[in-house]
Design a protein around this nucleic acid. Structure first.
Length: 430
RNA sequence: GGAGAGGUAGCGAAGUCCGGCCGUAACGCGCUCGACUCGAAAUCGAGUUAGGGGUUAAUAGCCUCUACGUGGGUUCGAAUCCCACCCUCUCCGCCA
């Protein structure tokens, strides 16, 4: 949510921002609505002020033992008018609120302007593509011999976009979670958390999933419950409504959770393999940062994500998302794209965003600056560090051998009970 | 699922039965400033909710409205009365 004051004071900033995002939202229309809101509030407040004064007088008379009933007829009429005006004002206030909550964040000045992912700008590359003297296979092709990834039975149990992991793959899944969490907590200073995977609509609104992106979520048919699409949701909302202490910033949380996404609107996209699942595991990083240093924190978080891939020896590139490709809540986003030789392309494996005060305003995450009278919103950041499924895909495709076996990256071997290579004779679940 | 208790500021908590100077909200803690002190602790004194509207260069001051879990209702007037819902805690039942 944007600052209403900013829109009033400097609407051009918002108009420019929306244009850069190729949004059709009309700011001038909103300004008229807001003017009507203020006029109505003004009108009704005058009447309320009259009523409050009269009420005080009535109270005085009553306390003195007098009879004030001759005032009631006139006051009754006043109450009637207040009720009408109040209802009108409330509606406009609600409209203003709905508008505000459906406007995306203003991109940071350093973000390249562009229409879609083709205009994202490469920041840098790390490592090199593996040199394979054979035609590399895609990960699901590799799994035909290796087993481990059981797409058919996943589909049988639940439907498409669900996969059962057998044996070595399930072990690799667990190894990746532990590997990621160990580095995030021991070396990058994150506090390990274990949040609920189900949250309510208020929480979903705090991070911006609701109200605009309800279709992307799984809503439970019980209470006001939704399955989280990422641990960003519970972790960012964790301290909502609380007043934070400046010296405690930044908070740095990490958690591994199951993530649930409906993937509505991506029918036919990545239907094969582990790339796009309804349920997947992800280790997430969330930071609640001081507004003065949040963009430095974004660089830091991006490095944390990159570090994971470097340890695994996976070649990747980092791109700065252009204005047209950024998410709703973000002011600046880096995508890290890992090289997949089987698919002969870079695929997103991590997304690190600074949402500035956009989510903090929705979730009411505030701190008091030293010496300041009024509390101020923190900045929220989130990044994947990393998802297990796509990492597994990258390992399979990058470390495949001519004979169809997979070399386990050295950093991961202690987490795999010393296993160095996955071979077809370990196959299960074919 | 059944019975009961509760939801008030940064935290704890009074007020609710009997509606009206009790919401810039008693009292306590915390925090800020000051006094005392070489300095600190202790003690003493003062201050300390947020959001909206108006005015303004101002996120300063002043005027004003709103908020006592949420949403309705009764009333001239609701923290207080009525209805519905949400959440927390305790006990019972069920259960990994």
């Amino acid at each position: 949510m944007l600052d209403l004051k900013l829109i009033q004071r400097d609407p051009q900033v918002v108009i420019d921002a929306l244009n850069k995002r190729h949004s059709k939202i009309d700011v001038n229309e909103f300004l008229e609505l807001d003017a009507r809101r203020r006029a109505l509030l003004n009108e009704v407040e005058v009447l309320k002020s009259q009523r409050n004064k009269a009420s005080e007088e009535v109270a005085k008379i009553k306390r003195a033992g007098g009879d004030a009933s001759d005032r009631f007829k006139e006051l009754g009429e006043l109450a009637g008018r207040i009720k009408e005006l109040d209802a009108a004002a409330e509606e406009v206030v609600a409209q203003v609120g709905e508008w505000l909550i459906s406007v995306p964040n203003v991109p940071h000045e350093s973000v390249p302007v562009g229409a879609d992912e083709n205009e994202n700008v490469e920041l840098h590359k790390w490592g090199t593509k593996p040199e394979l003297d054979f035609a590399p296979k895609e990960h699901w092709e590799l799994a035909e011999a290796l087993g481990g990834l059981d797409f058919e039975r996943g589909a049988k149990l639940a439907g498409s976009r669900f996969t059962v992991l057998w044996g070595w793959a399930a072990r690799l899944e667990r190894a990746l979670v532990n590997f990621f969490l160990d580095i995030q907590t021991r070396e990058h200073g994150y506090t390990e958390m274990f949040p609920p995977a189900i949250v309510n609509s208020t929480t979903m609104t705090g991070t911006g999933q609701l109200p605009k992106f309800e279709d992307d979520l799984f809503k439970l048919n019980y209470k006001d419950f939704y399955l989280i699409p990422t641990a960003e949701v519970p972790l960012t909302n964790l301290l909502s409504g609380e007043q934070l202490v400046e010296a405690d910033l930044p908070y740095a949380f990490t958690a591994q959770t199951q993530c649930f996404r409906s993937e509505a609107g991506s029918y036919g996209k990545d239907t094969k393999g582990l790339i796009r699942q309804h349920q997947f595991t992800k280790v997430e990083m969330v930071r609640l940062a001081h507004p003065d240093s949040s963009f430095e924190q974004l660089e830091l978080m991006r490095q944390h994500a990159e570090n994971m891939l470097q340890r695994l020896g996976l070649h990747y590139r980092v791109v700065t998302l252009c204005t047209g490709d950024m998410g709703f809540s973000s002011a600046k986003t880096y995508d890290i794209e890992v090289w997949l030789p089987g698919q002969d392309t870079y695929r997103e494996i991590s997304s690190c965003s600074n949402c500035t005060d956009f989510q903090a305003r929705r979730a009411n995450l505030r701190f008091k600056r030293e010496g300041a009278k009024k509390p101020e919103f923190v900045h929220t950041l989130n990044g994947s560090g990393l998802p297990t499924g796509r990492t597994m895909v990258a390992i399979l495709e990058n470390y495949q051998q001519a004979d169809g076996s997979i070399v386990i990256p050295e950093a991961l071997r202690p987490y795999m009970g010393g296993v160095e290579v996955i071979t077809p004779d370990m196959a299960q679940g074919k």
